[in-house]
Design a protein around this nucleic acid. Structure first.
Lengths: 231, 231
DNA sequence: TCAAAAGTGTTTGTACTACACCCATGC
DNA sequence: GCATGGGTGTAGTACAAACACTTTTGA
C-alpha cells in the first residue's frame, strides 16, 4: 500500500489568533507579510504542519518564532476549508487561539520577531486570506468562553486586584458590568482567593490582591451578563 | 512555485457521527469494516477529502454512500491529530456530526448500505482508530448545544407533541426533566408554535401538535437543567 | 480636606422549582 | 368508570439587578 502522503492531499496549515491583554486593551498578534501573497498586508501568524508534528507542536513553533515564547494557553478553534482561501492552492487551515498575560507580554517585547505587532481588537485592519473570519470566530469564542470558564487565569498576572479582573471582563465583553454585582458573583464562585496582601502606592485606598483558585471545580462557574450598563 | 500538494502533507479525512433519534432512543450510525485495519470491527463512517471538495462535500458523499441521503443538519466538531490514530500512516481527521429525524430514518432503512447499522448511544462497542473519542466529543457537544440552541428542529418530525419533545430532551441529556416546567419553559421561549391540530387515535386525551418556529431568534433560548429528577 | 477608587449591604423583582389537581380519550 | 397520559395553576424560594453609603489612601 502506498503511504498516504503520496496521494494528493490539500496542504495543511495552522493559523494562530494570539490574544494579549494589557492596560485595558485586548490585542492580537499580527504579521506584516514581506512576501506574496498579500505582500505588505497583515495576516495572522501561521505555518504549514510538518509530517511529524502534532497541531500543538506547530503552534509552539509559530509562537517561538514570532513571539519568542511558547507554552501558552492554547485551544483549537475551528478548521477552515474554503478552496479559495489561499491563492497559491488548496490549503486547509486549523485555527487555534492563544492567550498571553501582560507580564509575559512585556518580556515578549524584546523577543518578538521584527515582522509582528500587537493590534487592538477594536481596530483590526483588513487581513489576508480568510484571516478576518478566523479572527472574528476567535473573538466570539473567547467572549462566550469567559462566561462559563475561568479564562482570566491565562490573561492576568499571578496576583491582581478585583478591579483588574473586572476591567478584563468589561474589555473582552465590550460592555460594562456592575462593579458590586460582579464582585459578589466572582467571590461566591470561589474562582479567586484573597491573599491578605494589598497593592500599595496607588493614589487611593490600597486594594486587596487575589490569586486564582487552582483547585476550582470549573463546572460551577457561570457568569450572567446583565443587560444594563452598570452604574 | 511548486503546487502545495506536491509537498508531503498528512492525509486528510472526514469522520462523521450521525445521530438518529427514534422511539426514545438516540443512536449513532456505525460501520462494520470489511477491510484492514480494524477488519471486522466497528468504526464511524468516514472518507478522505478529495482535492476539489469542501468539508461539506465530503460529508455529503459519505452520507449518500452509507445512508442513501444527504442534506442533513451538519456541524463541524473538532479536528483530531494524534499521529498514531491511523496505523496506515499520518492522517488528520476533521470530525463532523449530523442529525437525522425519525421520519427520514425510516426511509433510510431501505437505502442504507449493507455495512452500516444504528447503534444505541448507551451501548457503544469498542471502535477502531480514535473513533470512541470522537463519538464522546460529539455526544458532549450535542448535550451542551441542546441547552441553548433549538436542536430539536433536526431530530423530530415536522409536527410533534409536547411529550415527544420532552422525551427527546430527556433522552439526549440522559436525565429526567419536570414535565410541567419543561412545557412552560419551551412555550415561553417561542421555540415552538401550536398548530391547533391534535394527534388522534391514542389511548388517551389527544395531544396538541406543534411545529418549530422558523422565525425564532435563536439567542433568547436558554434551557436550564434542574438538579431534581422530576416527579 | 479633597479626589479617587475600594469595600459593604439592602431592596426589589423575576424566574426557576416543586408541587397537585382536573381533563379528555379509548377500552 | 377506569386507566393513561394531556393540560393548567400556584406557593415558595433563590438569585440577579439596581442602587447608596462608608472607608482608605495619596496628594
Amino acid at each position: 500500500m502506498k503511504p498516504f502522503h503520496s496521494y494528493r492531499n490539500p496542504a495543511l496549515a495552522i493559523d494562530l489568533v494570539v490574544f494579549g491583554y494589557n492596560a485595558k486593551e485586548l490585542s492580537v498578534l499580527l504579521l506584516k507579510r514581506n512576501e506574496e501573497p498579500f505582500k505588505g498586508g497583515w495576516t495572522l501568524p501561521g505555518a504549514f504542519i510538518q509530517m511529524d508534528e502534532r497541531f500543538s507542536d506547530t503552534c509552539s513553533r509559530i509562537l517561538r518564532t514570532k513571539l519568542g515564547m511558547d507554552k501558552l494557553y492554547l485551544e483549537q478553534l475551528y478548521s477552515f476549508d474554503d478552496p479559495a482561501r489561499d491563492p497559491r492552492g488548496r490549503a486547509i487551515s486549523v485555527a487555534y487561539y492563544a492567550l498571553v498575560n501582560p507580564h509575559k507580554l512585556e518580556t515578549a517585547a524584546s523577543t518578538m520577531a521584527g515582522d509582528v505587532e500587537w493590534v487592538d481588537c477594536r481596530k483590526m485592519p483588513q487581513l489576508g486570506f480568510d484571516h478576518k473570519q478566523i479572527f472574528k470566530t476567535a473573538l466570539q469564542r473567547l467572549r462566550s468562553k469567559i462566561l462559563y470558564f475561568p479564562v482570566g487565569f491565562e490573561l492576568l498576572d499571578e496576583q491582581f486586584t478585583m478591579t483588574e479582573l473586572h476591567e478584563l471582563y468589561e474589555c473582552i465583553l465590550d460592555t460594562s458590568l456592575d462593579r458590586r454585582n460582579f464582585r459578589r458573583k466572582i467571590l461566591d464562585s470561589e474562582y479567586i482567593l484573597p491573599t491578605g496582601m494589598k497593592r500599595e502606592g496607588l493614589q487611593n485606598r490600597a486594594p486587596e490582591l487575589y490569586v486564582f483558585n487552582k483547585k476550582l471545580k470549573r463546572n460551577n462557574f457561570q457568569l450572567n451578563i446583565p443587560l444594563s450598563k452598570g452604574q
